[in-house]
Amino acid sequence: MQLGSQFCSLVMTGVAVIVIDRLGRRPLLLGGVSGMMISLFLLGSYYIFYNTVPAVAVVALLLYVGCYQLSFGPIGWLMISEIFPLKLRGRGISIAVLVNFGTNALVTFAFSPLKELLGAGVLFCGFGVICVVSLFFIYFVVPETKGLTLEEIEAKCL
């Protein structure tokens, strides 16, 4: 399973690199996060209803990995290098990376206790709800930066 997941991750990252400038950041984010949301609700459903059909979990995990690598994986790093104004870019990127790694650590350390407290199904559905919130944030707040210079992005975002 791990080798399949890594291969899926590699392939989808390559796809993102190839299509990001043609399709744009927002469409890839919206599509990828939608796929992540579906996969997390599917994984939650597996633990609640379908735990006798392990293929459901495998499909959900591969879908999640593929959609993450098409969206948040590469685009998050790309956008933090584009979105901050030039005079604040260094400080902004530093804070964004700190928040990224901090929230990754929080999820890592909180996962097992939350799984014991809530159960895997509820926990994965909770992560799915976070994806729903992310979709609204991307749709209403995140600007499209495709084809824009850093100066144009700064003028558009201020």
Rank of each mutant, 00 (worst) to 15 (best):
G31H: 08
C125L: 03
A120F: 04
F124S: 12
V122Y: 05
L123M: 13
L158K: 15
L86W: 00
P27L: 06
A16G: 00
V17Y: 05
L150F: 15
I75D: 00
P27H: 13
G24Q: 11
G147E: 03
Q6E: 10
I20N: 12
Y68G: 00
G73D: 06
L78T: 15
V132R: 03
K146D: 13
A105G: 07
V59Q: 06
F127M: 02
E82D: 14
Q6S: 14
Q2H: 09
V53D: 10
T149R: 09
C8R: 04
A155D: 15
P27G: 12
I130L: 15
S45D: 09
M12S: 10
R89N: 15
P113S: 09
A110N: 03
V17A: 12
G4S: 14
T108A: 15
L123D: 03
T108C: 04
L63G: 14
S112Q: 13
L98P: 04
A60R: 02
F49K: 10
P54C: 08
A96K: 00
G44H: 08
I130H: 04
F49I: 00
G90Y: 09
L23S: 01
Y64N: 13
G92L: 08
M1D: 12
L88Q: 09
V59K: 03
I75M: 10
I38T: 13
R25S: 01
S39E: 04
N51K: 01
N100P: 07
P143R: 09
S94T: 11
K87G: 09
K156H: 14
Y64A: 03
I38Y: 01
E151G: 01
F140N: 09
K156V: 09
C157R: 14
T103M: 15
M79N: 07
L10K: 04
V56N: 03
L63H: 12
I38F: 13
V19S: 07
F101M: 11
F109Q: 01
G73H: 07
I18F: 11
F137N: 12
G44S: 11
F109H: 00
I80R: 00
C125H: 07
G126L: 08
E154T: 09
F137P: 01
G35P: 03
E152I: 01
F124Q: 10
A16N: 06
G92S: 08
D21K: 02
K115R: 10
L29A: 05
N51D: 05
I48E: 08
A155F: 10
F49V: 06
E144F: 05
L78C: 10
F127W: 01
V141D: 05
M12W: 06
V17Q: 09
T13Y: 10
F41P: 03
L150Q: 11
M1E: 08
L61N: 03
Q2S: 07
L70G: 13
R22N: 12
G32D: 01
L118F: 12
I130N: 04
D21L: 05
V97C: 14
C131F: 01
Q6H: 06
S5I: 02
Y47S: 14
D21M: 04
L98V: 13
L29N: 05
M1F: 11
M37D: 08
P143Q: 11
L3I: 15
L63F: 10
G73W: 02
C67T: 08
K146N: 12
